[in-house]
């Protein structure tokens, strides 16, 4: 496929870039300086991932069931209103969310996780809801006409067909989460933001890079992993990544 070919060129280009950057970093001594932060980086990557996984995991555990509940026909009348509110919620910038979390809950990892959870929840609920609603009505009619119980209809027909969209929501959500987690440092959460913001404050570019590079790599890795997860989990018959 063309896209794969394009990707191969791109990877080649990226590798070259990384190589050149690497050579430059080595020559100029930046690499050696970066490695001084080695210990901090390790510690903070783990802490950063903890924030992301706890808040993101909670968001998935709350968001998907919430999306499912909102998509039930008995709630149809309230669901649209709820989605409108969620859409407005999604518009609120993440820094503002964290600031609001701080003004209500104070500082520390708790408020940070809460703020991240709210920022992450919205796309998951929205995608779960729209994904389930997009399952064609005739499939649902065929299923209940064949004698499926509502529970069987949900597990065997609705969720498998909506899974790709739901996972896309989780992917977006976690990308936001991993990108917002550095800001959590500002309200007392432990994350790679510590290196970035301190680096900015004391005008220390290497420290900044020591935070920024792992953050960027973390975001790209998580995005890629979730893409992979969608590739594997979503049935071949409805998986846009696996069409012939």
């Amino acid at each position: 496929m063309l896209f794969n070919q394009a990707r191969r060129y791109l990877y080649f280009g990226l590798l070259l870039l990384v190589f050149i950057t690497g050579v430059w970093a080595e020559r100029s001594g930046v690499l050696a300086e970066l490695l001084e932060y080695d210990e901090d980086i390790r510690y903070l990557v783990v802490a950063h991932l903890k924030l992301t996984l706890i808040s993101g995991g909670l968001a998935v555990l709350i968001g998907i069931p919430l999306g499912i509940v909102l998509s039930r026909p008995s709630l149809a009348r309230h669901a649209e209103t709820a989605m409108q509110l969620l859409n407005i919620g999604t518009t609120v910038p993440t820094l503002a969310l964290l600031a609001l979390a701080m003004s209500v809950l104070g500082i520390g990892n708790g408020p940070a996780i809460f703020g991240l959870l709210v920022a992450t929840l919205l796309p998951i609920v929205r995608n779960t809801y729209t994904g389930l609603l997009a399952v064609p009505a005739h499939l649902k009619e065929a299923a209940s006409g064949m004698g499926m119980l509502p529970r069987q209809l949900l597990w065997q027909v609705e969720l498998p067909n909506a899974l790709y969209v739901i996972l896309a929501g989780v992917r977006t959500a976690l990308a936001i989460n991993v990108g917002t987690a550095p800001l959590a440092f500002l309200i007392g959460g432990t994350s790679l933001g510590e290196l970035i913001f301190t680096g900015i404050a004391v005008d220390e570019p290497i420290m900044m890079l020591a935070g920024a590079v792992p953050t960027a790599l973390l975001a790209i890795t998580i995005d890629f992993s979730l893409g992979l997860l969608a590739f594997v989990l979503v049935s071949k018959g409805v998986n846009p990544l696996r069409q012939r």
């Binding site: 499939l139 065929a142 299923a143 499926m148 018959g237």
Partner: peptide, 20 residues
Amino acid sequence: VDLRRSIGYVIQQIGLFPNM
């Protein structure tokens, strides 16, 4: 549910489940 499982039902659109 028992009633429906004892009746073959074919609707206008092709109701094959694409995920199966």
